[in-house]
Design a protein around this nucleic acid. Structure first.
Lengths: 158, 158
DNA sequence: GACGAAATGATATAATATAACACTTCAACA
DNA sequence: TGTTGAAGTGTTATATTATATCATTTCGTC
């Protein structure tokens, strides 16, 4: 079975580096400034494969000695979401790093309630079903939120 | 085309009556008390086919002369969600009346950003795709949130 | 270096949600 | 029919999430 969730022992430094590199590329392609604050927030989000809330980010920033206030964090989040570098998980009021920001996807999120990890999937069957259902009733899709909560493979096994 | 959303000219009184009747049946079947406060909140939610927030409900209750506080509203909402008589729309922080509370569904919500109406759909293709995607990665589903935002057929036409 | 746009700082406050404890209601049963 | 215990509601306070507004700083362009 292919698990969407990363291995326990994976080299997370590489996840972060790769995400940062992609983010820089995307920002450049959009003539957007990947400022220090935005990089900090983005990096903090990528510290784990869990979703993180705005105020957790704020605490983390302040822990790093940055004198930040809520609007600072929300602005960075807005910027990153706008470029699809991160996603907001509506059912958690939290944010999650996207590892395929170029892909024009209807993303789906699997959220493990035990370990807290989130994994993004792009499932063409699901996307097609959503589009078909909308088409059948004349609904013009602008955004979709698909969040699936439960137990990841690892946690279900224990 | 079958529109999920109700006709402009539909008799909304019948929606409300039918929903109330179903709700009473479900509550009874679950040995749950459909108290006056719960009925008020439920009826307020059913005043329209839009989603309504907890604080809008609170205002409406107070407008009716009920001396309610936030916990009162949230408790009623918790009760109604628990029996699946209403659903929470995560991306709106709002609540919406369910018209098929008995159905053990993975519900999908279409939300029109123009008129604000919400419609629930049960699409077996979509549910199957979600289950298949989860199964393929060993994820044990406990809850799903599928919210599709855009323009309903009426609003897209204008 | 001057200018204007974009980004950030700073303060205040809005909007959403829950904890904790007191009081009331109601159904079951003695 | 009165008692009792659980469920429901009242009340106060506060936690959590998010945004409006205006001042200041940064940065690329000329």
């Amino acid at each position: 079975m292919t698990d969407l969730f990363p291995d326990k022992g994976h080299d997370h430094g590489r996840c972060i580096d790769s995400a940062l590199h992609q983010a820089e590329t995307v920002a450049e392609a959009n003539n957007a400034r990947f400022t220090d604050m935005r990089r900090r927030v983005f990096t903090l989000i990528w510290q784990s494969h869990k979703a993180i809330t705005a105020y957790e980010l704020l605490d983390a920033l302040q822990g790093e000695g940055v004198r930040a206030q809520p609007p600072t964090v929300y602005r960075a989040l807005e910027f990153l979401v706008g470029l699809r570098l991160i996603h907001r998980i509506e059912s958690l009021n939290a944010y999650f790093g996207c590892d395929m920001p170029d892909c024009e996807h209807l993303g789906q999120y699997f959220i493990c309630r035990n370990c807290g990890r989130v994994a993004e999937a792009v499932n063409e069957d699901m996307s097609r079903a959503v589009r078909a259902a909308a088409g059948a009733v004349g609904f013009k899709i602008e955004a979709t939120t698909i969040e699936i909560k439960g137990l990841c493979h690892d946690c279900a096994a224990h």
